[in-house]
């Protein structure tokens, strides 16, 4: 078998003129690059995406791979050649369009939802964080049993990052009402009680827990026990509150 590195004739057999011209051509290329290369660092604006069919066509019908390529591109958009943009500089309306496109190309992926919750919602700007929650809510409602994780994360963002308890309750309520599949863990379905408790809405939390216990939906004995203990805690807190209120009346 002929080797790749077969040497046919020694180097000295190459005419000097050819060797010299080769060297000159190489130096010319280096000089050309040195004098005329126009490296400018320019900030690129994120464009709006095309329709998903365009990406399906470009990827020759492999929409799953297209979704992954698009997602990685969108995620890395803040790192441009010679520049590192902060998330605040990104237009989140366009980001949402790109994330929706990824979901359109691959409806089974959780990537855009988790990127919205864990990456884009890290921005220190409540308006943009809310945009991410709106995106997660809309996507969650289309396939709640598969996308409950991102919604649970949205509750956390609303409660601890934006500190908007009513938004957190709204997200947690959507989780309770829509993510009813067996694969969704109880802690996710019960997030609403804890948020309500933290808000001091003890009455509402008590009604929800009592309702859940009476409905018989909970098969797990440990879960039932846990919720009963929470119910007792709430009742104790309520009686303490009423005692304090009575004492404080002049």
């Amino acid at each position: 078998m002929q080797s790749i590195f077969t040497i046919t004739r020694p180097l000295k057999d190459v005419p000097k003129s050819v060797r010299l011209l080769l060297l000159i051509a190489f130096l010319l290329q280096c000089l050309w690059h040195f004098y005329f290369s126009n490296l400018q660092i320019t900030k690129q604006e994120m464009p709006y995406p095309q329709q998903s069919d365009v990406y399906r066509l470009i990827s020759l019908g492999d929409s799953i791979s297209a979704a992954r390529f698009v997602m990685l591109w969108a995620q890395a958009f803040d790192n441009q050649p010679g520049l590192s943009l902060s998330l605040k500089e990104l237009d989140y309306a366009k980001v949402v369009e790109w994330l929706n496109l990824v979901l359109d190309l691959d409806s089974k992926t959780q990537y855009p939802l988790l990127a919205a919750a864990r990456f884009y919602a890290e921005v220190q700007e409540p308006a943009k964080q809310r945009q991410m929650i709106v995106f997660i809510k809309a996507a969650f409602l289309k396939d709640p049993d598969r996308r409950w994780r991102a919604m649970a994360h949205a509750v956390y963002i609303a409660k601890h990052r934006i500190k908007d308890m009513s938004l957190a309750v709204e997200c947690a309520r959507l989780l309770r009402l829509h993510a009813t599949g067996k694969n969704v863990p109880y802690w996710a379905k019960q997030m609403e009680f804890f948020v309500l408790e933290d808000m001091g809405e003890l009455g509402a939390a008590k009604i929800l827990i009592s309702g859940l216990l009476e409905s018989g939906e909970l098969d797990d004995k440990h879960q039932q026990q846990f919720l009963r203990s929470r119910l007792k805690d709430i009742e104790q807190r309520q009686s303490m509150n009423s005692t304090i209120e009575q004492l404080s009346i002049p």
Partner: peptide, 19 residues
Amino acid sequence: VGELAITETLQTQVSIFAF
């Protein structure tokens, strides 16, 4: 590519590799 992905690393790797 796996180093770039923040979640679903295996799925991302296998999708691009297979493509």
